[in-house]
Design a protein around this nucleic acid. Sequence first.
RNA 1: GGAAGCGUCGCAUAGAGGCCGAGUGCAUCUGUCUUGAAAACAGAAGUGCCGCAAGGCACCGUGGGUUCGAAUCCCACCGCUUCCGCCA
Length: 437
Amino acid sequence: MLDIKFIRENRDIVEASAKNRGRNLDLDELISLDDKRLASLVSVEALRAEQNQVSNKIKVEKDDTTRFQMIEEMKVLKEDLKKREDDLKEIIEAWQKAMLQIPNIVSVDTPIGPDESGNKVVRTWGEKPQFSFTPKEHDELGEALDIIDTKTATEVAGPRLAYIKGDLVRIQFALIQMCLEIMTNVETLQKIADDAKVSVKVTPFMPVLPPVFIKPVMQVKMARFMTPEEHYLFPNDDLMLVGSAEHTLGAMYADTIFTEADMPLRYLGYSTAFRREAGSYGRDTKGIIRQHQFDKLEMETFCLPENSIQEQDFLVAIQEYVLQKLKLPYQVVAVCTGDMGFPDVRQLDIETWMPGQNKYRETHSADLIGSFQSRRLGTRIKRADGKIEPVHMNDATLFAMGRTMVAIIENYQNEDGSITIPEVLRPYIGKDKITLE
RNA sequence: GGAAGCGUCGCAUAGAGGCCGAGUGCAUCUGUCUUGAAAACAGAAGUGCCGCAAGGCACCGUGGGUUCGAAUCCCACCGCUUCCGCCA
């Protein structure tokens, strides 16, 4: 959510930004609604002030006739006040609804474009592997090695679900272990920051296993509940399943005021993510690239406003570091205005090379949210001069397990159908190859 | 799931219709004293909204209600604690 004062003072910026996202905003309506809200607020408060004043007099008034008269007057005022309060409540509800429809302001360096065709490749890393044979897709390899079973999962639980088995499970746990070591080691993180030439105060990430349930009100504050059909809902319990650990991690400090010295705060969440994929019928139906359920390591950080762009660059540097550890070729993409997330100021994606599909596929996302979520959440910082303002937030994928497995399987495949285990993961697994057991 | 009790300013507590936006203790910050600190003493200190300001309004778990007036009374919900039952 944006600040209404900012909207009133910067109409052109808000409108231009929304337009670049492909949304037409009618700010006239919002602003006249806000005028109404302010007028109504003033009238309600004036009545309440009178009520307070007269009530204070009533308690000391000695003369019974005057007293009685005052009470009668207040009975009338009370009726009027009630009516105006109800009006105000109605206006505020409409106002809030309108406010929630306004997307965040995009950064100046975000490419302008209508959809993903407008995304810009910022840099690429790694050599695409050369094969002396035609590389296969992950689902074919995975099924043959009996490490991915979507067929049984579909029978037991439904489509877009899978049994992950054997050495592929070991790969997942190895990835987690490797990441925990990296993300809690200050020297490693400092080196990543230095190499990427980002200037941030380096602190370790706190590992977290968050709930996979979240209250819809929290999800609204996180600006991640725009389309109910994308979520698994439990209306009887007023709960829903998270689509990412970002949702529960970001909401962790609702209604909290930090001090400047507390910043930055960095968390590494590991959680299952649940997505209905309502709008993607027929897309990526093979294998495990697009699942209703997948496990993900997710970074969520809180920092001072002046540091949040550097913070995002730091998170991207970490993403690149771990992909380089796995020697997976990738490209970093600046996501354009028409394709980026509703609450984002700036979004950078990483697409990893998938030889079986012969293209780069999105595996990582880094979202600079700024104060868009924290303003709704009430997560704030008290500056040294005493001023209180919303904290800035960033979230970014460290590894989406499913897609990382896909990338490993396809990049490390051998002609005989076996898969070489990336070198960095071997110490955790104790072998160098996945073969049919 | 059943029973009882409880949710007040960072923490701990007081408050039982108007003298309460709220007292006290601890913690915090600022002065005095001290070479410095501690102690002692004095003082400051919640959040949001409206307003140029003066000032006003709201907030005692949440939402309703009663009343001229609610932290205080009533109702519902949520949460916590203890006991019983069940359970990894």
